[in-house]
Amino acid sequence: MEIFFQQIVNGLVQGSVYALVALGYTMVYGILGLINFAHGEVVMIGAMLALSSLNAMLGWGMPPLLALPLSLAFTMLGCMALGYGIERIAYRPLRHAPRLAPLITAIGVSIVLQNLAMMVWGRQYHAFPQMIANNTHTLAGAIINDVQIIIFITALAIMAGLMVVVHRTRLGRAMRAVAEDQHAAQLMGVDINRVISITFMLGSALAAVAGLMVSANYGLAHYYMGFLLGLKAFTAAVLGGIGNLRGAMLGGLLLGLIESLGAGYIGDLTGGFMGSNYQDVFAFFVLIAVLVLRPSGLLGERLAERA
């Protein structure tokens, strides 16, 4: 039973990481109907900026509790600028182009960001500095540490914060209007370019937080880390229903749980024929099953029969 609880904790922690990144995907998708494939790389840049700024500040002798928020702020600003730039350069000119055109520019931007990061930060894996004494706690036999608790709470808090922004503020109303109908929103006096830019910047700020959290949890940063994370988070967003904030959270947590329970129990379920090597197969089968039953994801709205 201890092992089972531990797997649940593992899944929730991993799931929160996915959820944090998935929120960024879903924000942009909700407004523009566009998969921002470069989002995983923005997370990576976030991790790298956090790494550099933290190391610099700690090097100046700054106390960790001051360096951490400063570095977070710096990283968020950096990523927001990056997100703004990506949207201006790679997406805005293609807003009326065929649907797949921005997909290609997104892939191009990903490759550029990866290789830029490789030039700036080098090819090696960087150890991420440990900021706080990472105390561990035992909960019904399962072990969890402070960083993991912080990640879980941050993911929930960010989702709640975004819900408030989207549903309770003027900006959120403008966002929803743009999502509903760009032309009508424009006629109603919404500056759609501004709204879309802000959405990208918000999404990128989330990516910055996610990058810092992921690096702090696993203790490393590398220019290639965005790829797999982005892919998993994208899967999570689709599982929950892309474009839906609660869906991203739910999808992330579910995917985390599926993965950890899958890795832990496939072997027993299949009598040893399959093992944790089929963890991703298991996850994709669940995804396919969900989408066959609910073609728009768990919490996705039933878009009218149009793509």
Partner: peptide, 15 residues
């Protein structure tokens, strides 16, 4: 099993 891009091994380690 894991893969060469993974960073989270808690599930297999728990197993």
């Amino acid at each position: 099993y894991t893969n060469d891009k993974a960073v989270d091994f808690t599930a297999v380690l728990t197993a």
